[in-house]
Write a protein that binds this DNA or RNA. Structure first.
Lengths: 123, 123
DNA sequence: CCTTTATGTTGACATGTGTCGAACCAGTGA
DNA sequence: TCACTGGTTCGACACATGTCAACATAAAGG
């Protein structure tokens, strides 16, 4: 399958905020147990080389989204790719959408921004 | 032991760069296997709630450093704390130094900055 | 319907990880 | 030298995780 012509192509991606759980920069004050629990989930999701490559591939792909078939060459089997994508999705880092035959993944920008703030120079 | 008076108190922490392994923002281009491997180690180190709390406690502590006894109340045994501190150290996120009876940990600023760049708004 | 292609899910397995208690090492101070 | 305290290392264990092959599901096209 060549996958050159995209089907309907909808979804301009406007609203997106299932977040809500704020955490201060890591250097601002000691995190509470609850904050650490939530935050660790995100870091953990990116703590695997395969997931990091998948995430990076999607984030750097055209239009900020990518079909699974576009990013499946990371050295592991297809079920494993699917498994990792699910984990990234469960961590709130990705969203998925089926369009015709293919499934497209895109990064959740708000979460990425939140993680960036965590690592800010923290004065 | 009260630990109110600090012993000699040396080390102004000037040079610090055992880094050297650069990685582009996650959204700039797909990471290579090697880049992902190195980068994932750092995220993985912060992917545990206990380690995240320890790291945050040190980063937000006075002078950017903390004695183990200052941060040991995170709900796990003291050997476990030591174990996690070692992991953070192995990941390059912390450095340790013994001063008299106590061991002090401090965050490696260059690594924190590198992780921040990874999550930057990315193209 | 039946095939084919694209993804996701399940089951099984090896390996990794977090945790603790016990033993051990490093300074301090009598 | 000996005891005491802060911290690390060791050994063991339960549990989580990454991986794959096999199976299941979804859409498209005969």
């Amino acid at each position: 399958m060549s996958r050159t012509e995209v089907p309907p192509k909808p979804k301009p991606m406007t609203e997106s905020g299932p977040e809500g759980s704020y955490c201060p920069p890591l250097g601002e004050r000691p995190l509470t147990a609850g904050e650490a629990e939530r935050t660790a989930r995100m870091f953990k999701a990116l703590g695997d080389p395969v997931r990091l490559r998948l995430f990076s591939a999607i984030a750097s792909h055209e239009d900020g989204e990518a079909c699974v078939c576009d990013i499946s060459d990371v050295g592991v089997s297809q079920p494993t790719v699917s498994h990792h994508l699910k984990k990234l999705k469960d961590a709130g880092l990705l969203t998925s959408q089926r369009r015709g035959t293919w499934v497209y993944y895109r990064v959740e920008p708000s979460v990425l921004a939140a993680m960036g703030r965590l690592l800010a120079p923290a004065g």
